[in-house]
Amino acid sequence: MSARANILNKLRTSLAGTTPRPDEFDESLVTGPWRYPPEERIARLRELMEAVHTEVHQTSEGDWPARVAELLAKREITNLLYAPATPHGEQLARAWKGEAGRPALRVYDRPVEEWKAELFNDVQASVTGTLGGIAATGSLVLWPDRNEPRLMSLVPPVHIALLKASAIHDNWYNMMTDQNWAAGLPSNALLVSGPSKTADIEQVLAYGAHGPKELIVLILEDV
């Protein structure tokens, strides 16, 4: 018999005569303590994200491309990976057009195999959108897709994420049920709650383990 059949048989034999337990999920336990008045959501998310070395800025729909330029200039970053086919990508390209001294814009437009070394070795920063944020845990929600593939938010040492204030939810549970995630998840969904880090040596916290060394969140307050 196959391993599969053996394992399932053994489990079924052990359960003979029993019935599965009913589902007694008490959702108040994961929502009750994690609700915030709308005006406090940004502050809560900010506090938690900053506690783990995320740089958070509050800006507006119109101003963020200039903000990005400023942040990159300060770091002497000369190229930026962006997604031209997204509304925010389009906006960035439009705003930067003709401006002097802007970092070179790079595009993730080929399968990764065709430019993996370049992505790993040359790209200095990326800017992506987010599906939303979670106030309870200070998290960004990313659903990578063709325009903003999975590695775009992972490989470049600096990741800039755009977060609409209106997309900040109280807690993960409410977000996933409101949006009915169970009906269909993308091939990869992520909660990101800071730059990569490790405490594996003597429990001393060090940032920039394998993913981005810096995570910069721009909260667009008017959308």
Binding site: T137, P186, S187
Partner: peptide, 20 residues
């Protein structure tokens, strides 16, 4: 309160995707 990454994998690279 949460780890830096919570990674939910529900499939390999889809035909129109560029990585994974």
């Amino acid at each position: 309160p949460i780890t830096t990454y919570v990674n939910l994998i529900s499939g390999p690279r889809k035909p129109d995707e560029l990585d994974g």
